[in-house]
Write a protein that binds this DNA or RNA. Structure first.
Lengths: 366, 366
DNA sequence: ATGAAAGCGCTAACAG
DNA sequence: CTGTTAGCGCTTTCAT
């Protein structure tokens, strides 16, 4: 464990280059308005001394940090059961890095942590926040809003606008906050595509195993399922929908219930790939063949899961990494809004959500 | 997207409480040496104004940041195939949070990013670093060492000390850096336990599918396998070892090779659970029963993988989250070494590595 | 185009 | 115990 050593300051570079601190500062920050011979001398001095600006000192005066907080609530550790979160992070990281921003990760374990996160955000340590609000009743979004930090949400928050996709209106809570920005995939549309595919395959008893319904993604996927089933004769049989929780274990239980209630089920749209995995297992154990007897479609296209499933899973793909990247881009754009880049005001982040498209990936299960 | 507002300063609090800035500062930082009536007045002023210290200003003078960088190299995106990394992060986050430290995440995509990371670390933005050096030839450890930032490694770096567990010496590179601190699990010992278990089961043709051998964990597990096989008659048959890469696909290929070379194989120790998964699949496809015909053991005890495998996987468990927590604890302890806490010098971080124990978890596959 | 000087908000001696 | 004072390293007017 090495001790950190004292590093050269602007002053040192200035001395070495025989100029003033102000000049060095100018060169370091883009070098506008410094004539070439001088600028070059400064650059050499910087290189020779291995000068790196002190971010704390800089922040103190500029009031910018070039850092963004990523807040992830993980009450049930479900986040870690699938690589979702890692992919998202990766997308975010790439985008932030490209814009020389740092990523400060805030993982919350439960209610106690909310205050800590809110305090941190309110403390002005970061320029903005990227927040994954997983649960409908999560107080975090509110706290964050109060903290007054520019924020982009991952996944539609419950109090935000509704899914863009058309379809029967859902109740929706208290007016819908107008200022909220979020990125989500087209859960509802993706679900519709999946179910329609099943119907086009000639299936008539199409069931749905939902995700945890305290998350908007699960609700939206259920809505999508209902959108297309509503038009089918006997499609709104409530026994065809069984609630689950996005886990393989939950999928198993749900599939058993389903088989019990409707032994004639000939297709299942599972809320995600993990759920589909559990369903697959139960189906196999029950002696049914997939897809011959029962067709199965998942959601997410979590590669290691979907590809390795037996049979390989037909599923609705969403570009998770791109979602992360987009969130970061939106935030950064908002932060520099009308300030740094000329004309950036023209394309400020949209109020409301940005919905990324989904695509059906056909494999063997449907 | 809300705009951040200007926040109250120490000065404002001091004015409101009718004291000097120094007094407020004292109260805010633990309140030693401020008499109660005053301290209370200050606390109230802080609360009323919603004062939060400006970290940049503080860092500027203290030269501490209460922030730690976590560097994760993910060249092949393998990191995201399993939840390993997420668990580790969680452990780290918990420990850092408990000590009011922030987590700055640095994900590297390849060689180009190394310079960026090195610069950041050298830039003195953080008090220390937690580094996961995945590959043997990774230049990152060297760069980081040069940056002069206190560092704890996750997983034994190749140029560090050897595994603590006794056993045949490995060559090891250039003298072994003495100052390096790392946390790892007992890969070698765990492997030995697994293989011994297989042998105790009466298996005589015990094979090993290795991990990616450019990672010390894979090498150490292979060494552990060899440790016990060396004593067995015919145990050092080289055909029983086939190199793979920690992935399910790799496991499949390796298992096929194995079956081809040694159709009489009656046990397989896979370098990790994912590999075991692939092996299981090929074994099943070949008509062999597990564990009756071939016993299989994995490594990691990645719950969603090991439990959901068919049959559920017997595996070597390592406490990943605890590894993360321990890394953070070690780093933090080193940072405050002899400074903050009185007597902390007594238990400074150990030079060399800390090896966490592993345990064999018996399920159905062996 | 370059330099001089004034802080940003805070902590840490040092006085009293 | 409390207040005064002097910077931490940098950016940014404002002169020149």
């Amino acid at each position: 464990m090495t001790e950190a050593v004292s590093r050269p300051t602007l002053e040192a570079v200035a001395a070495r280059a025989g100029v003033s601190r102000a000049t060095v500062s100018r060169v370091v920050n883009g070098g506008d308005g410094v004539r070439e011979p001088l600028a070059e001398r400064v650059r050499r001095a910087v290189a020779e001394l291995g000068y790196v600006p002190n971010q704390a000192a800089r922040s103190l005066v500029t009031r910018r940090h070039d850092a963004v907080a990523v807040v992830i609530a993980e009450p049930e550790t479900r986040v870690f059961a699938d690589p979702f979160f890692a992919l998202q992070l990766r997308g975010i990281s790439k985008e932030l890095t490209a814009h020389d921003n740092q990523l400060v990760l805030l993982l919350t374990e439960g209610r106690d942590d909310h205050a800590r996160v809110a305090r941190y955000l309110a403390g002005g340590h970061v320029d903005g926040a990227l927040v994954f609000s997983l649960h409908l009743d999560d107080p975090l979004p509110g706290l964050i809003h109060d903290a007054g930090v520019p924020t982009v949400f991952g996944g539609r928050p419950d109090w935000g606008g509704d899914t863009r996709a058309p379809g029967p209106e859902r109740p929706g809570r208290a007016g819908g906050n107008p200022g909220v920005v979020y990125v989500d995939c087209d859960n509802r549309g993706g679900a519709r595509t999946a179910v329609r595919h099943l119907v086009d395959l000639g299936r008539r008893r199409v069931a749905h195993i939902t995700g945890a319904l305290d998350q908007t993604s699960a609700v939206d996927r259920l809505d999508g399922y209902r959108d297309v089933m509503a038009d089918l004769p006997g499609g709104s049989d409530p026994r065809l929908v069984v609630e689950s929780d996005f886990t393989p274990g939950g999928g198993e239980g749900a599939m058993r219930t389903l088989l019990d209630r409707c032994p004639d089920v000939d297709a299942v749209f599972a809320a995600n790939d993990l759920t589909a995995l559990g369903a697959l297992r139960v189906l196999r154990a029950s002696g049914r063949r997939v897809p011959e007897d029962v067709a199965v479609i998942g959601f997410d296209d979590m590669l290691p899961v979907a590809m390795e499933a037996d049979p390989p899973l037909t599923t609705v793909r969403q570009d998770i990494e791109e979602m992360g990247r987009l969130m970061a881009r939106l935030l950064l754009r908002g932060l520099s809004g009308g300030r740094d880049r000329a004309g950036a005001t023209a394309d400020t982040p949209p109020d409301g959500g940005v919905i990324l498209p989904t695509t059906l990936v056909r494999r063997a299960s449907a």
